[in-house]
Design a protein around this nucleic acid. Structure first.
Lengths: 110, 110
DNA sequence: TAAAGTAGGTACCAACCGGTAACCAGGAAA
DNA sequence: TTTCCTGGTTACCGGTTGGTACCTACTTTA
């Protein structure tokens, strides 16, 4: 039963990995990050076009969540019409790297 | 619009990363993998005890999914009562490594 | 004899989640 | 004048998801 001690330390209630996973695991989320990393800072409308099939509502939800967790930044210019640009933060780029590693595994998998 | 060409190649409809994420993103899934990697091959009953709070039904669902995708193996011994042991496959261990990398990022995050 | 442990299966139910459609402001174009 | 564009918000609706409870069939333990 020494194992349990390890586990107690290793998986506290609010496991950080769990946080990240809950953040990323909503539909479209990784797709959005991918596009942002390929495309650089992108406006809402262009994102909606690049992430084919996503609805405005869900796109906004995802971006808000990612922004709240410091994965993307949001740049709002109060022009008319307003211009809002989203891009990866430093953390976002780190995460993107980790996701690419996972994708590499996924690809040589079958 | 040269960007779109890149994206077309980079994100095919069935993006492998998406597959992995849908597989892992159910509740409890990463927790199960974590316990399996800490504990080595483990029986159903012990898993249910180690993954505190999970129901038998969900545990079985997750293990079936992970088995179907070659992330865990299932060893069934038709004794009475039967003895069923689950453990990480080679792919499962690779995935576990990738998850640890993500956790490292999550930890120094804030 | 009754309870508990083995590894699940099944039915039901509430909560959540994503999609659709309508709507907002203000300005530009037809 | 009506439509479209910007970047959203809101109400509603249906499918999926996870949780609870109860069942199997056999053995061991109290």
């Amino acid at each position: 039963m020494t194992k349990d001690k390890h586990l107690d330390k290793a998986i506290p209630k609010g496991c950080p990995l769990d946080r990240v996973f809950r953040l990323l695991s909503g539909e479209w989320t990784t797709h959005i990050l991918w596009v942002l990393s390929q495309n650089g800072p992108t406006r809402h409308g262009e994102l909606r076009r690049l992430v084919e099939g996503i609805s405005s509502k869900v796109l906004t939800d995802r971006l808000r969540m990612l922004e709240a967790n410091d994965v993307v930044f949001r740049d709002y210019e109060p022009t008319v019409p307003p211009k809002v640009t989203y891009g990866l933060t430093a953390v976002g780029k780190e995460l993107d790297q980790a996701l690419r590693a996972m994708q590499a595994i996924a690809e040589h998998w079958t």
